[in-house]
Write a protein that binds this DNA or RNA. Structure first.
Length: 950
RNA sequence: GCAGAGGUGGCGGAGUGGUUAACGCGCUGGGCUGAGGGCCCAGUCCUUAGUGGAUCGCAGGUUCGAAUCCUGUCCUCUGCACCA
């Protein structure tokens, strides 16, 4: 068959669209399957990472349709965000224009790949039809008490001219542009995600996320149980609140440390000789660059603030320091320092000459006075507390007792701290959802009434590179409004929402994408979201941010009665990296741009080697999907991507592998052509082929169901071809069998290579379209024996081939004949017996020997030695080899138990054996029924005939 | 430092106690075929012209038997990090 991928693929894409093959509706009579890929940002054209993501998703969507599920497989775009705004500034247009141009482009690329999306559900978050619901839900969250407007120190990126959430800061740099982040105090809108800290943490136990993602989320939420302890300040009404996980060390407190930004610092040292030092330290910490910070933090540094605090349990006065290692935003921003039992405090105390006190010993009976050369951070009995009720207590008991004592005097209480912070959603950007709030001088901040929504982004804004700040803030028609409460002149909030807000509920909008009255109906959400999205595929880079926000949002809407589920994603698959070769210097351990291929290292001058590196612009080692589709077609690209590696694994781009996959397409086409060209000619191999088909179907379903696409494709696109070739080689050529085979095989080709599969289906006269086909169940009963019989023949051929090489070297003349001596009847009898006993859990070790001796055949004295030998080989085996009853496959056991006649099978295939073994004649008979050629009768074993070449 | 993942033939990668490694790619030699991106055979660690030996990061251990289980150790990747 001539193969014009471009023609075939575009034709079927049109046919699917015309037939509305992928449009899904609620249908309670079928199991639903919601297949979703992480929301893409429309950045112009599709890149290979996208191709991998969607090829995985599409294969799974198509597979589940074949398995009879009602599949929801939507696509849309996360189209708010800075790149469009920056592009508009650069070109003087409007982000709206830029965005829609990009969306058309990427959508065309996706359509060309043949992805089976229900395009009716398509939307873009930057369209008012979507973001109006952002606003309405913001008002809903506000009513739930989950919105907060407060002054807060925020991460500010000068380059992006906006605030960043904690999660968006990596190594003190902006996650998007890489610039260092600075701290600023601003009025900001927050969502109280911390209300759900415990549920977000605990529900991780019950959802199917990869372990590393769970670990990252746990880490990020960072729950720790401990005790809040107040240290009153000497000569002041105020006290220092601290958080500790080690209240059992409270008697070892020899100082208290505040973060330099702590508000109490100024109060404590203002106007004293200590003030200047503190200011210097604070300024240093606030403005610290990343480089300085790493260097600085190697030494713990602090200043005395001139005052003392009182240990609430023993009344001792200890000095108060400000320390650069205390993080303002964690806990209370203040720590009780126990140098004897915390290494960090130990280092600090040593540097500033502060007492280091032992209040725990490692084992009961140790000397409480023994000095410490480093902090002992483990648990052990309390000592030196000065109070009898504490000394001797260990671990949790010690902690609880101390906490109880603090609680009794009101000086402290048990509490839980989280690393997780509330989600700051304000952004000082234009291209995002306007926050529906109004600032009135008289009434304060007032929510926009739902009836007045949506607040639309103005289109009459000009963008230019010179302008700074948010264009919304200077757009008078947008800003000036009236107060919904008092009617007087008021100003709109000009902050827009973080784009992660958009992607926190889009998966529910897809359930009901055209709803004009609500974000989504409860009925649709409950049907499609039941148990969460069934398969969510995307990159690990969203492990914390997007996945955490979406989980929070789903719980918030659940509590507002909008949906039933609390966890949005049932099974999450994080696709691996896509790598491609890049120049690499082993000396410098550095990768370079592909322009340097074949050159010397720009740094050290050594010749550059090659290493696989993450595909990306910076190295230039990218591959254009468009080029590849143009050259090989979408099916080949999809096959390569899916067969190259399982979804979670990293994968290397390889031109030769891609070409090999393209060749495989031709191989499959040829195989199918040959199947379509057969005559009515039933033969002995027909049953075998259909049995292989069923076995492969079974394996394929298992693999695909478990998202092991590589294994699935191996079966559908490789094993099936091999089996077909074997069938033909063994003389199979029956039209009806071939048709039945194709009827099972062609649908298996559809998930990975849907276009060519559909083409085959049409050619063979399959009913309807593959795209909407549902496969019947398979019945594999009875296949084992058929397959084992053929496997027996193949094994015999393989063994004989190996022996032939040896035989040639032994034999003087030309080899022209092969003789198979199959195991004597008594051996097969023994094997049947052993298999049967094995099934009955017979104890061969203790009773095996007695059993053999009780057999009638044992009366034959000349055979006794052989009988024992065979029996041992069957049941016990040797040091290197386990007994055959353990190693035989189910099929082989069935074969033997059913009285398989080896000689008959070999004799029925003498022509084939002669051809395969390159001999003129083939003889096969059980040992004893013919001449013992070359003494091979001795080695004959059930399923392993003695083989002699002559 | 903490956490997670992982180290298997020239390469990609299967394989979680049982004939010393699936499948693919690359390379070498051979056969079939009118031709073909097609099919088939053999080889691709060491050794040898008669079936030998070694091997799954390294070192121990458990077992009749280990790539697979246990202990230790080295290395790589990813994330977090003075988190009290």
């Amino acid at each position: 068959m001539a193969y014009d991928a471009q023609e075939v693929e575009t034709r079927w894409q049109k046919a699917w669209a015309d037939a509305r093959a992928f449009e899904a509706e609620i249908d309670h009579s079928k199991p639903k399957f919601y297949c979703l890929e992480m929301f893409p940002y429309p950045s112009g054209s599709m890149h290979m990472g996208h191709v991998r993501n969607y090829s995985i998703g599409d294969a799974m969507a198509r597979f589940h349709r074949l398995m009879g599920s009602n599949v929801l497989y939507p696509m849309g775009y996360d189209s708010f965000g800075m790149p469009a705004e920056n592009a508009a500034k650069k070109d003087g247009g409007h982000p709206h224009t830029v965005t829609h141009r990009n969306i058309s482009s990427i959508r065309a690329d996706q359509e060309r790949m043949g992805y089976s999306y229900d395009w009716r559900r398509f939307f873009a978050t930057s369209d008012v039809d979507y973001y109006r619901w952002n606003q309405q839900m913001f008002l809903m969250l506000n009513e739930q008490g989950l919105v907060e407007h407060k002054m807060a120190p925020v991460n500010w990126c000068v380059d992006c001219d906006t605030v960043l959430a904690n999660e968006q800061v990596k190594n003190n740099r902006c996650w998007r542009c890489g610039l260092e982040v600075v701290q600023r105090d601003m009025m900001q809108w927050f969502l109280r995600m911390t209300e759900y800290s415990d549920e977000l943490l605990e529900e991780l136990e019950n959802i199917v996320f990869p372990e590393n993602v769970k670990a990252m989320q746990r880490n990020w939420i960072g729950r720790s149980h401990g005790t809040h302890i107040d240290f009153p300040i000497v000569g002041s009404e105020a006290s220092i609140g601290t958080f500790t996980t080690r209240p059992d060390t409270i008697f070892g407190v020899t100082f208290v440390t505040l973060s330099p930004e702590h508000p109490l610092c100024e109060e404590l040292c203002a106007g004293t000789e200590w003030e200047a030092d503190w200011r210097e330290l604070r300024d240093e910490c606030v403005r610290m660059s990343e480089f300085e910070r790493i260097n600085m933090l190697k030494e713990k540094k602090g200043v005395f603030l001139g005052r003392h605090a009182v240990n609430p349990l023993n009344g001792e006065e200890v000095p108060i320091y400000a320390g650069n290692f205390v993080v303002a935003s964690y806990g209370t921003g203040a720590v009780m320092a126990v140098p004897g039992h915390d290494q960090r405090d130990y280092d600090f105390a040593e540097r500033y000459g502060i007492e280091i006190r032992r209040v725990l010993i490692e084992r009961a009976g140790d000397d409480p006075a023994s000095p410490l050369s480093e902090a002992f951070e483990g648990y052990g009995p309390m000592v030196n507390s000065g109070r009898d009720e504490f000394d001797g207590l260990t671990g949790d008991e010690a902690k609880d007792t101390v906490t109880g004592a603090l609680q009794a005097t009101g000086a402290g209480y048990g509490t839980i701290e989280y690393r997780l912070k509330d989600w700051g959603v304000s952004r000082q950007r234009f291209w995002g959802t306007p926050i529906p709030m109004i600032h009135c001088e008289a009434c304060g901040t007032v929510p926009v009434p739902v009836a007045d929504l949506p607040i639309e982004l103005p289109l009459d804004v000009t963008f230019s590179e010179e302008q700074g700040g948010n264009p919304l803030a200077t757009h008078d028609a947008f800003v000036n409004t009236s107060c919904p409460s008092c009617g007087n002149a008021a100003k709109r909030e000009t902050d827009t929402m973080d784009t992660f807000y958009d992607s926190s509920w889009y998966f529910m909008r897809f359930c009901d994408a055209t709803n004009e009255n609500a974000p989504f109906s409860r009925e649709a959400a409950d049907y499609w979201m039941s148990g969460g999205v069934d398969l969510y595929i995307g990159g690990i880079e969203h492990a914390v941010m997007h996945l955490l926000y979406a989980r929070f949002f789903t719980k918030a809407t659940r509590d507002a009665g909008m949906n039933e589920v609390g966890e949005p994603f049932g099974t999450l698959v994080c696709q691996g990296m896509l790598n491609a070769p890049a120049p690499f210097c082993a000396n410098c351990n550095a990768e370079y741009h592909v322009d340097n291929f074949g050159a010397d290292c720009p740094t050290c001058g050594e010749p550059l080697g090659t290493r696989s590196a993450k595909m990306g612009k910076s190295l230039g080692n990218t591959v254009s999907p468009g080029d590849m589709i143009g050259r090989y077609g979408a099916d080949t690209v999809r096959l390569f991507i899916l067969y190259g590696a399982n979804p979670e694994a990293g994968m290397d781009w390889s031109d030769t592998a891609l070409e090999a996959n393209h060749r495989q397409m031709y191989t499959i086409i040829d195989a199918i052509d040959s199947a379509l060209a057969m005559d009515e000619s039933p033969g002995p191999m027909d049953d075998w082929l259909l049995a292989r088909l069923r076995t492969n179907q079974h394996a394929w379903r298992e693999a695909m169901g478990g998202v092991s696409l590589r294994e699935g494709v191996m079966v559908s696109h490789f094993e099936m071809v091999s089996d077909w070739n074997w069938y033909r080689r063994r003389g199979g050529c029956d039209r009806a069998t071939a048709r039945a085979f194709l009827g099972g095989w062609v649908p298996m080709l559809a998930p990975a290579t849907p276009h060519i599969a559909e083409e085959f289906w049409q050619k063979m006269g399959g009913e309807g379209m593959l795209a909407t086909l549902v496969l019947p169940d398979i019945d594999e009963s009875g296949d084992k024996t058929v397959l084992a019989r053929e496997a027996y023949l193949r094994t015999v051929i393989r063994t004989a081939r190996n022996l032939r090489g040896l035989a040639e070297r032994h034999t003087e003349g030309e080899i022209s004949r092969v003789v198979f001596q199959t195991a004597a009847a008594w051996k097969a009898e023994l094997a049947r017996d052993a298999i049967q006993l094995h099934l009955e859990n017979f104890d061969f070790k203790t009773q095996g020997q007695a059993h053999v001796q009780s057999l009638p055949i044992f009366e034959n004295e000349t055979l006794r030695g052989d009988i024992f030998q065979i029996w041992m080989a069957l049941t016990a085996g040797s040091k290197k080899k386990l007994g055959r009853i353990h190693t035989w496959s189910d099929g082989e056991r069935t074969l033997i138990s059913s009285g398989f006649d080896e000689a008959a099978v070999l004799n029925a295939n003498t022509d084939f054996l002669a051809t395969e073994l390159e001999v003129d004649s083939v003889d096969a008979y059980p040992v004893g029924e013919g001449e013992d050629v070359a003494g091979k009768a001795r080695v004959a074993f059930p399923l392993e005939p003695g083989i002699a070449f002559l």
